[in-house]
Structure formats: C-alpha cells, structure tokens
C-alpha cells in the first residue's frame, strides 16, 4: 500500500471522475446496436447502389473512429492514474483492472465486430467457452500456486 495516504483526497476525486467517464462511455458503446441492425437491413436490401455503399462506408468508418477514441481514452485514464499515483494502491489496481476489461470489450465490439444480435452463435459460444476455460486455467493456476507458496516456508 505505497503512498496511499497522501493521494486519498485527490484519489477520491479522480475516482469519481473515472467512474463518470466510464459511465458516459458505456451507453455510447451500446448505442451502436441500433445503427447496427439498421445497417444489416440496409445492406441486404440495397446492395449495389453507390449512395448506399457510401453511407455504409461512413457508418463503418465511424465505428472504427469511435472504437479508437474509446481505446485512447480508456488507455489514457489508467496511465494517468498510475503516473500521478492518484489512488491508493488497492484502488489503483482495481481501477486499471476494470478499465482494461472495458477496453477489451471495446476492442471486441469495434475492431473485431463481435456484436451479439448479429452474430453466429458459433463464434460467440467459442469466445464464451474460451473465457470459461481461460478463467479456470489462469485462476486455478493462481489459486494453486498461491496456496503452495504460502505453505512452503
């Protein structure tokens, strides 16, 4: 818990800020669903018309821009938090962990185009199953080795 005490005052402020930012970003991410379904309808019905293709292009471009902006924001916050030690050690770890998770979801959504309503269940199941195995393996490893380490002195 290094340097936790002195940063508490500023820490709570920044913590609230961070929560606000994340809270503001989340709806933006999920707002894409509406346009997502619209585009699907558009693309199946009206292929070939240049103006539609133009709209489609702009929509997809917008999606990438949105994704990369979110990624930069979600990266800048934890870097700033760590650089200026704005939270106590424990909270800092929690904050950067949560921000990383959010960013992973952002990448899946905007760069890898995983959006459940328009998705083959195969791919989604694959990712979810992988997550399960991944948690079992990495979590189990940590659990076992931590326990062993504690009992080996």
């Amino acid at each position: 818990m290094s340097g936790g005490k002195k940063a508490v005052g500023a820490g709570t402020l920044v913590r609230r800020l961070a929560i606000l930012v994340v809270a503001a970003l989340l709806p933006a991410m999920f707002a894409r669903r509406r346009t997502g379904t619209r585009s699907l309808a558009g693309s199946t019905g009206s292929h070939g018309r240049p103006e539609d293709e133009q709209a489609e292009y702009r929509r997809e471009l917008g999606s990438y821009v949105r994704g990369v902006s979110l990624a930069f924001v979600l990266t800048a916050i934890p870097f700033a938090l760590v650089h200026w030690s704005m939270l106590s050690h424990g909270w800092l770890l929690v904050a950067i962990g949560v921000l990383a998770l959010v960013q992973v979801v952002v990448h899946f959504r905007f760069f890898l185009h995983i959006d459940p309503p328009n998705q083959h269940t195969d791919d989604l199941m694959l990712i979810l199953f992988t997550s399960l195995i991944l948690i079992a393996m990495a979590g189990g490893t940590t659990w076992i080795l931590t326990d062993l380490a504690a009992r080996m002195h």
Partner: peptide, 15 residues
C-alpha cells in the same frame, strides 16, 4: 494482439 497488449500494459507495466 491489441487486446493482448491491453492486458500486458495493465498487468505487467501499470500493475
């Protein structure tokens, strides 16, 4: 790979 890097900078560097 970008996703992996996000986890790396979080766990290894920032952590």
């Amino acid at each position: 790979l970008d996703i992996v890097w996000v986890v790396i900078f979080t766990v290894v560097y920032l952590g």
